[in-house]
Design a protein around this nucleic acid. Structure first.
Length: 617
DNA sequence: CCGAAAAGCGCG
DNA sequence: AAAGCGCGCTTTTCGG
């Protein structure tokens, strides 16, 4: 493999309807900036101030930065306090409740490019509290720019500003924090006209505008940035619309589970003087009963994890009891309690970071709806469609495996996707040369483990551990896999070598996705690049699908993205038609990949959990 | 009292 | 030759 990034490029990656970057904005003249000495900040406090701000707004500039100061993190419970606008030399702080009308008028008048730093945050507050609608087609985000340029750097406004603009950028923040401590103020209570508060709020827009100038020129692959800005728009709208849940059901489940957990924990305390939540106490308890605890945690302590307790349970039934308590506690505390606390009128509005991982995967918090248990459908049962609608779920079929076939160009692996039988059954038949293998055969699971192990960069010992097999039992299967799919091994070596060569010559090992996203490896860990490439490109494909779905008019029907899956709420009578549209938007079967990227649509469901229940004939 | 770390566990 | 990747949340523990 050569140093040429295009080596991994393939296919047509045009994006639907997403004109974020305009030809002309690149040509805007950007002046050399020297530190922050000449910068002026202003507070809109009088009609005269407002007039001056409007006059300033009429000047020519490459971009206008917008920022907000709020009472906290919850946009529904909290309040918007300050909105700031600024450019490279001036920042204006606008008290929302006094002068909000001036802000709205200003934004309606302004027709140029806009940038935020972390648009997701400000977009949510602005959507909830103001009538202004963000013009996404001319909206930028310097946090997204920073992540695209280097996903391993800190992408906060202050770290970036300290690094790229002026070391003193965070001085104001320190001053403000000190004032908070001295006066017992918080973001909700600091007086709006307190100098350090509004001044550094205003300065943030200056920093953001400067970062935009800096980064705009550095974006070598506008395609990734355009994808990300489009996804930010679509995902913010998913956040706003939210996912409906059944509150009564959540409450019933929560009450029932917590009561049972509490009783069980009390019993352990009364009977054995053991706190169930404390691993060290449990270790002592089971050792006292004569148990041999031979697994250790990452930190070296004796382990009381699920796997160890399962082993112990064969000899000590009490270990099973601990597992049950943990399970119930997790269901109650991590899921139902969270749903009850975080919903707004029966709707969850999670925070979705579209660039949550360095690979470009999304992450989700408050609540983390990408990590709901599937072995316990009762949790997903909390999720219901909108009024008069039903749920649909659309998943890509083995997308990372298909991308491994594509990137490795291994004909055998590619062929396996063409077969009618279950993919991993087919793989197992090929690997073990035994056409009688069926879905229940343990060799299917072994091959699946080897295949995903390859995709994740695991060695034989890790695969053996995951499968619960001895190294020497696992090894022949790995060899058989390598013999059958030599392209995969070659691909792993190529990516690993490319990464190592770059680490030696350029100081950093990295690969580039077909969209142009640069994926850096930690030093000495270039073997992770195979996984980064697969995971990252799979994320890009899902993201592009979100834009396709939005363009097809399904934006309002999307509830959640889950890595390689999208959850929808759609009108009952449109299921067939929507199913066709979803497949068209998600699948890539035009030959741009060595194997077709297919997606399955499941449903309709009236609760999400239904999908995870055994189907009855 | 608070924040960070560790341990454990949920997902793709 | 060998290397499991990426996340978030809760509880407990521990140090400042």
């Amino acid at each position: 493999m050569t140093d040429d990034d295009t080596e991994l490029l393939s296919g047509d990656h045009r994006l639907p309807n997403n004109p974020v970057l305009h030809e002309n904005d690149v040509r805007v003249e950007v002046k050399e900036r020297r530190g922050l000495d000449e910068v002026q900040v202003h507070l809109v406090n009088t009609v005269q101030d407002a007039v001056e701000m409007m006059s300033w707004l009429g000047e020519r500039r490459p971009v206008l930065a917008v920022d907000t100061e709020t009472t906290g993190f919850n946009a529904w419970d909290g309040d918007l306090r300050l909105i700031q606008i600024g450019d490279a030399m001036h920042g204006w702080a606008i008290p929302w409740h006094m002068w909000g009308g001036v802000f709205v008028e200003a934004m309606q008048k302004y027709e140029g490019q806009i940038t935020f730093h972390n648009a997701a945050f400000d977009a949510r507050w602005l959507t909830v509290h103001t009538p202004w609608e963000i013009p996404w087609h001319r909206t930028h985000d310097t946090m997204i720019m920073a992540h695209v340029l280097d996903p391993t750097q800190q992408v906060g406004l202050k770290p970036l500003s300290n690094r790229f603009i002026d070391r003193r950028a965070s001085a104001g923040e320190a001053l403000l924090k000190a004032a908070f401590a001295e006066n017992k103020w918080g973001w909700a209570t600091v007086p709006i006209d307190f100098g350090p508060y509004w001044e550094y709020g205003a300065l943030d827009t200056v920093l953001t505008a400067r970062l935009w100038e800096q980064f705009r020129a550095d974006i070598r692959y506008p395609q990734v940035y355009e994808l990300e800005m489009g996804v930010r728009r679509v995902v913010s709208s998913m956040e706003d619309a939210g996912s409906p849940i059944d509150l009564q059901y959540c409450d019933d489940q929560y009450q029932d589970l917590t009561a049972r957990v509490e009783r069980a924990k009390q019993w352990w305390l009364d009977t054995y003087d053991v706190k169930v939540g404390s691993a060290p106490q449990l270790v002592k308890f089971f050792q006292g009963m004569g148990a041999n605890i031979d697994r250790t945690t990452a930190g070296g302590a004796p382990s009381m994890d699920k796997a160890m307790l399962r082993i112990l349970a064969k000899e000590f039934p009490l270990a099973e009891h601990i597992l049950k308590i943990r399970k119930s506690e997790k269901l109650a505390g991590t899921y139902f309690k969270n749903f009850l606390e975080k919903n707004v009128d029966g709707v969850l509005h999670p925070s979705i970071r579209t660039l949550g991982a360095r690979t470009g995967r999304m992450s989700m918090t408050d609540p983390a709806l990408q990590t709901l248990p599937k072995g316990e459908p009762t949790v997903r049962d909390a999720f219901i469609p909108r009024e008069g609608e039903v749920l649909l779920s659309a998943d890509y079929d083995q997308i990372e495996m298909r991308l491994m076939a594509h990137f490795s160009r291994d004909p055998g692996l590619a062929e396996a996707f063409a077969s009618e039988t279950d993919f991993f059954v087919g793989l197992a038949r090929q690997v073990f040369g035994d056409p009688s293998i069926d879905k229940e055969d343990p060799r299917r699971g072994i091959v699946k483990g080897v295949a995903y192990g390859k995709a994740y960069g695991a060695g034989t010992s890790k695969m053996a551990e995951t499968a619960g097999l001895r190294f020497d039992v696992m090894q022949p299967s790995v060899h058989a896999f390598d013999r059958n799919y030599p392209g995969v091994l070659r691909f792993q070596n190529e990516v690993g070598n490319l990464g190592m060569n770059r680490e030696n010559s350029e100081g950093i090992g990295y690969v580039t996705t077909p969209f142009g996203r640069r994926l850096p490896a930690d030093s000495g860990r270039t073997y992770t690049l195979v996984n980064y490439l697969l995971q990252s490109h799979a994320a890009e494909i899902l993201k592009r699908a979100l834009l396709n779905l939005d363009s097809a008019g399904l934006g309002p029907n999307m509830l959640l993205p889950v890595h390689d899956e999208v959850i929808f709420s759609v009108p009952k009578d449109s299921v067939e038609e929507v199913t066709r549209t979803i497949k068209e938007c998600m699948e890539v079967t035009d030959g741009s990949y060595l194997v077709p990227l297919t997606a399955g649509v499941e449903g309709p469901y009236d609760r999400w959990g239904t999908k995870y229940r055994k189907k009855t004939a």
